[in-house]
Protein backbone atom coordinates (compact mmCIF):
# COMPACT_ATOMS: atom_id res chain seq x y z
CA UNK A 1 0.00 0.00 0.00
CA UNK A 2 1.15 3.49 -0.76
CA UNK A 3 1.62 5.92 2.09
CA UNK A 4 2.33 4.93 5.64
CA UNK A 5 -1.07 4.48 7.17
CA UNK A 6 -1.53 0.81 7.97
CA UNK A 7 -4.53 -0.05 10.07
CA UNK A 8 -4.64 -2.79 12.65
CA UNK A 9 -7.33 -4.70 14.45
CA UNK A 10 -6.57 -2.67 17.57
CA UNK A 11 -7.40 0.54 15.73
CA UNK A 12 -10.60 -1.03 14.46
CA UNK A 13 -11.91 -1.21 17.97
CA UNK A 14 -11.08 2.44 18.45
CA UNK A 15 -12.08 3.98 15.13
CA UNK A 16 -15.47 4.12 13.52
CA UNK A 17 -15.76 3.24 9.85
CA UNK A 18 -16.12 6.92 8.97
CA UNK A 19 -12.96 7.70 10.94
CA UNK A 20 -11.06 5.30 8.73
CA UNK A 21 -12.40 7.29 5.79
CA UNK A 22 -11.51 10.68 7.29
CA UNK A 23 -7.98 9.58 8.15
CA UNK A 24 -7.42 8.01 4.76
CA UNK A 25 -8.66 11.14 3.02
CA UNK A 26 -6.33 13.31 5.11
CA UNK A 27 -3.47 10.99 4.21
CA UNK A 28 -4.36 11.23 0.51
CA UNK A 29 -4.60 15.00 0.93
CA UNK A 30 -0.98 15.12 2.03
CA UNK A 31 0.07 13.27 -1.11
CA UNK A 32 -2.19 15.05 -3.59
CA UNK A 33 -2.66 18.84 -3.37
CA UNK A 34 -5.49 18.77 -5.94
CA UNK A 35 -7.79 16.90 -3.55
CA UNK A 36 -10.53 19.09 -2.08
CA UNK A 37 -13.33 18.12 0.31
CA UNK A 38 -16.93 19.26 0.44
CA UNK A 39 -19.77 18.64 2.82
CA UNK A 40 -23.26 19.93 3.50
CA UNK A 41 -23.10 20.66 7.23
CA UNK A 42 -21.96 17.14 8.08
CA UNK A 43 -18.22 17.61 8.58
CA UNK A 44 -18.23 15.94 11.94
CA UNK A 45 -20.86 13.26 11.30
CA UNK A 46 -19.18 12.03 8.11
CA UNK A 47 -15.64 12.54 9.48
CA UNK A 48 -14.63 14.53 6.41
CA UNK A 49 -13.86 17.08 9.12
CA UNK A 50 -10.59 15.21 9.78
CA UNK A 51 -9.45 16.50 6.37
CA UNK A 52 -10.80 19.95 7.21
CA UNK A 53 -8.59 20.24 10.30
CA UNK A 54 -5.47 19.61 8.27
CA UNK A 55 -6.45 21.41 5.06
CA UNK A 56 -8.89 24.19 5.93
CA UNK A 57 -8.18 26.00 2.64
CA UNK A 58 -9.16 22.93 0.63
CA UNK A 59 -12.35 22.23 2.54
CA UNK A 60 -15.74 23.73 1.66
CA UNK A 61 -18.86 23.47 3.76
CA UNK A 62 -21.71 24.62 1.52
CA UNK A 63 -24.33 24.50 4.25
CA UNK A 64 -27.38 22.28 4.08
CA UNK A 65 -27.53 22.39 0.29
CA UNK A 66 -26.71 19.04 -1.30
CA UNK A 67 -27.75 19.97 -4.85
CA UNK A 68 -25.43 22.94 -4.77
CA UNK A 69 -22.64 20.82 -3.28
CA UNK A 70 -22.76 18.33 -6.16
CA UNK A 71 -22.78 21.13 -8.74
CA UNK A 72 -19.90 22.94 -7.05
CA UNK A 73 -17.94 19.68 -6.92
CA UNK A 74 -18.56 19.07 -10.61
CA UNK A 75 -17.25 22.54 -11.41
CA UNK A 76 -14.18 22.01 -9.25
CA UNK A 77 -13.50 18.65 -10.90
CA UNK A 78 -13.89 20.20 -14.35
CA UNK A 79 -11.26 22.76 -13.36
CA UNK A 80 -8.73 20.14 -12.24
CA UNK A 81 -9.44 19.46 -8.57
CA UNK A 82 -10.35 16.00 -7.25
CA UNK A 83 -13.34 16.60 -4.97
CA UNK A 84 -14.43 14.22 -2.23
CA UNK A 85 -18.02 14.88 -1.16
CA UNK A 86 -19.61 13.61 2.00
CA UNK A 87 -23.13 13.62 3.25
CA UNK A 88 -25.56 10.90 4.32
CA UNK A 89 -26.25 8.22 1.69
CA UNK A 90 -29.97 8.93 1.60
CA UNK A 91 -29.31 12.55 0.61
CA UNK A 92 -26.39 11.83 -1.74
CA UNK A 93 -28.48 9.39 -3.74
CA UNK A 94 -31.88 11.12 -3.64
CA UNK A 95 -31.83 14.78 -2.65
CA UNK A 96 -29.39 15.64 -5.41
CA UNK A 97 -29.97 12.70 -7.75
CA UNK A 98 -30.32 15.06 -10.73
CA UNK A 99 -26.95 16.69 -10.00
CA UNK A 100 -25.37 13.24 -9.45
CA UNK A 101 -26.84 12.06 -12.74
CA UNK A 102 -26.08 15.11 -14.88
CA UNK A 103 -23.25 17.12 -13.32
CA UNK A 104 -21.20 14.20 -12.03
CA UNK A 105 -22.02 11.09 -14.10
CA UNK A 106 -23.02 12.51 -17.49
CA UNK A 107 -20.03 14.84 -17.46
CA UNK A 108 -17.99 11.87 -16.17
CA UNK A 109 -16.00 14.06 -13.79
CA UNK A 110 -13.39 12.79 -11.38
CA UNK A 111 -15.40 13.26 -8.18
CA UNK A 112 -15.68 10.82 -5.26
CA UNK A 113 -18.84 10.61 -3.22
CA UNK A 114 -18.29 9.07 0.18
CA UNK A 115 -21.79 8.68 1.54
CA UNK A 116 -22.16 7.75 5.19
CA UNK A 117 -25.02 6.47 7.38
CA UNK A 118 -25.69 3.79 4.76
CA UNK A 119 -28.56 1.33 4.81
CA UNK A 120 -30.29 1.27 8.18
CA UNK A 121 -27.12 2.11 10.12
CA UNK A 122 -28.67 5.33 11.44
CA UNK A 123 -31.47 3.13 12.70
CA UNK A 124 -32.96 5.36 15.35
CA UNK A 125 -33.34 8.28 12.94
CA UNK A 126 -35.98 6.40 11.01
CA UNK A 127 -36.67 6.11 7.31
CA UNK A 128 -35.94 9.76 6.51
CA UNK A 129 -32.31 8.89 7.29
CA UNK A 130 -32.13 5.27 6.07
CA UNK A 131 -30.57 4.76 2.65
CA UNK A 132 -32.44 1.78 1.27
CA UNK A 133 -32.62 2.67 -2.42
CA UNK A 134 -29.16 4.15 -3.06
CA UNK A 135 -27.82 0.99 -4.75
CA UNK A 136 -30.78 1.03 -7.13
CA UNK A 137 -30.26 4.70 -7.96
CA UNK A 138 -26.48 4.70 -8.25
CA UNK A 139 -26.20 1.36 -10.05
CA UNK A 140 -28.38 2.77 -12.82
CA UNK A 141 -26.15 5.81 -13.36
CA UNK A 142 -23.74 5.35 -16.28
CA UNK A 143 -20.01 5.97 -15.60
CA UNK A 144 -20.49 5.58 -11.83
CA UNK A 145 -18.58 2.96 -9.83
CA UNK A 146 -20.50 1.79 -6.75
CA UNK A 147 -18.73 0.38 -3.70
CA UNK A 148 -20.00 -0.78 -0.29
CA UNK A 149 -17.09 -1.66 2.02
CA UNK A 150 -17.56 -4.25 4.78
CA UNK A 151 -15.66 -2.49 7.55
CA UNK A 152 -13.20 0.26 8.39
CA UNK A 153 -10.13 -1.41 6.89
CA UNK A 154 -11.97 -2.09 3.66
CA UNK A 155 -13.21 1.51 3.65
CA UNK A 156 -9.61 2.72 3.78
CA UNK A 157 -8.78 0.44 0.85
CA UNK A 158 -11.83 1.54 -1.11
CA UNK A 159 -11.16 5.26 -0.61
CA UNK A 160 -7.58 4.84 -1.84
CA UNK A 161 -8.72 2.77 -4.81
CA UNK A 162 -11.36 5.39 -5.63
CA UNK A 163 -8.70 8.07 -5.81
CA UNK A 164 -6.63 5.92 -8.16
CA UNK A 165 -9.60 5.42 -10.47
CA UNK A 166 -10.22 8.27 -12.90
CA UNK A 167 -13.97 8.90 -12.87
CA UNK A 168 -16.91 9.22 -10.52
CA UNK A 169 -17.15 6.81 -7.60
CA UNK A 170 -19.90 6.33 -5.01
CA UNK A 171 -18.88 4.66 -1.74
CA UNK A 172 -21.49 4.03 0.96
CA UNK A 173 -20.30 3.38 4.49
CA UNK A 174 -22.10 2.83 7.75
CA UNK A 175 -22.59 5.13 10.67
CA UNK A 176 -20.68 4.10 13.78
CA UNK A 177 -18.58 0.99 14.25
CA UNK A 178 -18.68 -2.02 11.97
CA UNK A 179 -17.81 -5.51 13.17
CA UNK A 180 -14.20 -6.11 12.15
CA UNK A 181 -13.89 -8.34 9.10
CA UNK A 182 -10.33 -7.51 8.15
CA UNK A 183 -7.50 -7.26 10.64
CA UNK A 184 -5.00 -6.65 7.86
CA UNK A 185 -5.49 -4.32 4.87
CA UNK A 186 -3.39 -6.48 2.54
CA UNK A 187 -5.98 -9.00 1.38
CA UNK A 188 -5.96 -7.89 -2.24
CA UNK A 189 -8.76 -5.35 -2.44
CA UNK A 190 -9.55 -4.60 -6.05
CA UNK A 191 -12.55 -2.66 -7.39
CA UNK A 192 -14.88 -5.06 -9.17
CA UNK A 193 -13.40 -8.24 -7.64
CA UNK A 194 -15.32 -10.13 -4.98
CA UNK A 195 -13.34 -11.46 -2.02
CA UNK A 196 -13.92 -15.06 -0.97
CA UNK A 197 -14.20 -15.01 2.82
CA UNK A 198 -15.02 -18.71 3.28
CA UNK A 199 -14.65 -21.68 0.96
CA UNK A 200 -17.68 -23.77 0.17
CA UNK A 201 -19.28 -26.05 -2.38
CA UNK A 202 -22.86 -26.49 -1.08
CA UNK A 203 -24.20 -22.96 -1.32
CA UNK A 204 -22.86 -19.43 -1.80
CA UNK A 205 -23.79 -16.45 0.31
CA UNK A 206 -23.02 -13.21 -1.52
CA UNK A 207 -23.03 -10.30 0.90
CA UNK A 208 -22.11 -6.65 0.86
CA UNK A 209 -21.29 -4.06 3.52
CA UNK A 210 -21.74 -5.05 7.13
CA UNK A 211 -23.69 -8.14 6.00
CA UNK A 212 -20.40 -9.72 4.90
CA UNK A 213 -19.30 -10.19 8.51
CA UNK A 214 -22.69 -11.69 9.34
CA UNK A 215 -22.43 -14.07 6.38
CA UNK A 216 -19.02 -15.27 7.53
CA UNK A 217 -20.36 -15.94 11.03
CA UNK A 218 -23.27 -17.85 9.53
CA UNK A 219 -20.91 -19.95 7.38
CA UNK A 220 -18.78 -20.89 10.37
CA UNK A 221 -21.85 -21.84 12.37
CA UNK A 222 -23.39 -23.90 9.54
CA UNK A 223 -20.14 -25.77 9.02
CA UNK A 224 -20.14 -26.89 12.64
CA UNK A 225 -23.85 -27.36 13.18
CA UNK A 226 -25.02 -28.73 9.81
CA UNK A 227 -21.79 -29.79 8.17
CA UNK A 228 -22.52 -27.42 5.30
CA UNK A 229 -19.77 -25.98 3.17
CA UNK A 230 -20.91 -22.41 2.64
CA UNK A 231 -18.96 -20.21 0.25
CA UNK A 232 -19.04 -16.57 1.34
CA UNK A 233 -18.30 -13.78 -1.11
CA UNK A 234 -17.78 -10.21 0.02
CA UNK A 235 -19.22 -8.33 -2.95
CA UNK A 236 -17.83 -4.94 -1.99
CA UNK A 237 -18.29 -3.56 -5.51
CA UNK A 238 -21.88 -3.35 -6.71
CA UNK A 239 -20.82 -1.89 -10.05
CA UNK A 240 -18.99 -3.13 -11.97
CA UNK A 241 -20.25 -6.42 -10.50
CA UNK A 242 -17.88 -9.39 -10.41
CA UNK A 243 -19.89 -11.48 -12.87
CA UNK A 244 -17.29 -14.22 -13.00
CA UNK A 245 -17.59 -14.81 -9.25
CA UNK A 246 -21.39 -15.02 -9.57
CA UNK A 247 -21.24 -17.44 -12.51
CA UNK A 248 -18.68 -19.55 -10.68
CA UNK A 249 -20.95 -19.67 -7.65
CA UNK A 250 -23.86 -20.84 -9.82
CA UNK A 251 -21.71 -23.55 -11.43
CA UNK A 252 -19.97 -24.72 -8.26
CA UNK A 253 -22.67 -24.48 -5.62
CA UNK A 254 -26.01 -24.27 -7.48
CA UNK A 255 -27.54 -22.25 -4.66
CA UNK A 256 -27.14 -18.57 -3.85
CA UNK A 257 -28.32 -16.31 -1.05
CA UNK A 258 -27.69 -12.57 -1.36
CA UNK A 259 -27.59 -10.30 1.70
CA UNK A 260 -27.70 -6.52 1.77
CA UNK A 261 -28.79 -3.65 4.00
CA UNK A 262 -30.99 -2.27 1.20
CA UNK A 263 -34.29 -2.92 -0.50
CA UNK A 264 -34.17 -6.27 -2.33
CA UNK A 265 -35.29 -4.34 -5.42
CA UNK A 266 -32.46 -2.79 -7.38
CA UNK A 267 -29.54 -3.69 -5.13
CA UNK A 268 -27.11 -6.61 -4.79
CA UNK A 269 -29.80 -9.29 -5.10
CA UNK A 270 -31.10 -7.74 -8.29
CA UNK A 271 -27.60 -7.39 -9.70
CA UNK A 272 -26.85 -11.07 -9.04
CA UNK A 273 -30.23 -12.11 -10.46
CA UNK A 274 -29.51 -10.17 -13.66
CA UNK A 275 -26.24 -12.05 -14.16
CA UNK A 276 -27.94 -15.37 -13.42
CA UNK A 277 -30.86 -14.76 -15.77
CA UNK A 278 -28.66 -13.59 -18.62
CA UNK A 279 -26.46 -16.64 -18.24
CA UNK A 280 -29.51 -18.87 -18.68
CA UNK A 281 -28.53 -20.96 -15.68
CA UNK A 282 -31.08 -21.87 -13.05
CA UNK A 283 -30.10 -21.79 -9.41
CA UNK A 284 -31.67 -21.97 -5.96
CA UNK A 285 -31.89 -18.33 -4.98
CA UNK A 286 -33.06 -16.05 -2.19
CA UNK A 287 -32.53 -12.33 -1.69
CA UNK A 288 -32.21 -11.05 1.86
CA UNK A 289 -32.75 -7.37 2.56
CA UNK A 290 -35.71 -5.07 3.01
CA UNK A 291 -38.66 -6.80 1.36
CA UNK A 292 -39.88 -3.64 -0.37
CA UNK A 293 -40.77 -2.05 2.94
CA UNK A 294 -39.38 0.76 5.05
CA UNK A 295 -37.41 -0.33 8.09
CA UNK A 296 -38.48 0.02 11.70
CA UNK A 297 -36.77 2.44 14.08
CA UNK A 298 -34.13 1.01 16.35
CA UNK A 299 -30.52 0.03 16.92
CA UNK A 300 -28.83 -1.06 13.71
CA UNK A 301 -28.10 -4.52 15.12
CA UNK A 302 -31.74 -4.93 16.10
CA UNK A 303 -32.97 -3.80 12.70
CA UNK A 304 -30.57 -6.18 10.94
CA UNK A 305 -31.97 -8.98 13.09
CA UNK A 306 -35.58 -8.00 12.40
CA UNK A 307 -34.88 -7.83 8.66
CA UNK A 308 -33.12 -11.20 8.74
CA UNK A 309 -29.85 -9.84 7.39
CA UNK A 310 -27.82 -10.84 10.46
CA UNK A 311 -26.15 -14.22 10.96
CA UNK A 312 -29.33 -15.84 12.32
CA UNK A 313 -31.35 -14.65 9.35
CA UNK A 314 -28.70 -15.88 6.94
CA UNK A 315 -28.54 -19.28 8.67
CA UNK A 316 -32.32 -19.64 8.34
CA UNK A 317 -32.24 -18.60 4.68
CA UNK A 318 -29.41 -21.01 3.86
CA UNK A 319 -31.27 -23.90 5.48
CA UNK A 320 -34.41 -22.94 3.59
CA UNK A 321 -32.66 -22.82 0.21
CA UNK A 322 -30.81 -26.09 0.98
CA UNK A 323 -34.15 -27.75 1.70
CA UNK A 324 -35.75 -26.68 -1.54
CA UNK A 325 -35.69 -28.70 -4.72
CA UNK A 326 -35.32 -25.95 -7.23
CA UNK A 327 -35.06 -28.47 -10.08
CA UNK A 328 -38.78 -29.00 -10.41
CA UNK A 329 -38.37 -30.55 -13.82
CA UNK A 330 -36.59 -33.93 -13.55
CA UNK A 331 -35.90 -33.95 -17.23
CA UNK A 332 -34.14 -30.63 -17.21
CA UNK A 333 -30.97 -31.95 -18.79
CA UNK A 334 -29.52 -28.76 -20.14
CA UNK A 335 -28.30 -27.45 -16.81
CA UNK A 336 -24.78 -26.88 -15.70
Amino acid sequence: MAGGFVYTAVESTEMSTAEYYGNTLAELGREHPEIVALTADLANSTKIGIFQKEFPDRFFNVGIAEQNMFGVAAGMAKAGCVPFLSTFSVFASLRCADQLHTDICYQNVNAKIIATHAGTSFGQAGSTHHAIVDFAVTRAMPNLTVICPADGVETANAVRAAYELNGPVYIRINRGFDRVLYADPDYGFEIGKAVELHEGTDITVIATGSCAFQALQAANFLENADGLKVRVLNMHTLKPLDKDAVLKAIMDTRRIVTVEDHNIIGGLGSAVAEVMAEAGKGCGFTRLGLKDTFAPIGLHEDIMSMLGIDSNGIIAAVRDVMGKDFELDDNWDDEV
Binding site: V36, V72, G75, K78, G80
Partner: peptide, 19 residues
Amino acid sequence: SLGHGLPIAAGTALAARVL
Protein backbone atom coordinates in the same frame (compact mmCIF):
# COMPACT_ATOMS: atom_id res chain seq x y z
CA SER B 1 -31.39 20.54 -16.45
CA LEU B 2 -32.11 24.02 -15.13
CA GLY B 3 -30.60 25.47 -11.98
CA HIS B 4 -27.33 23.55 -12.43
CA GLY B 5 -25.08 26.17 -13.99
CA LEU B 6 -24.60 28.55 -11.10
CA PRO B 7 -23.40 25.85 -8.66
CA ILE B 8 -20.98 24.54 -11.29
CA ALA B 9 -19.73 28.08 -11.94
CA ALA B 10 -19.23 28.58 -8.20
CA GLY B 11 -17.17 25.37 -8.33
CA THR B 12 -14.88 26.51 -11.14
CA ALA B 13 -14.46 29.85 -9.33
CA LEU B 14 -13.59 28.11 -6.05
CA ALA B 15 -11.19 25.79 -7.89
CA ALA B 16 -9.32 28.84 -9.22
CA ARG B 17 -8.65 29.82 -5.61
CA VAL B 18 -7.44 26.33 -4.64
CA LEU B 19 -5.29 25.92 -7.74
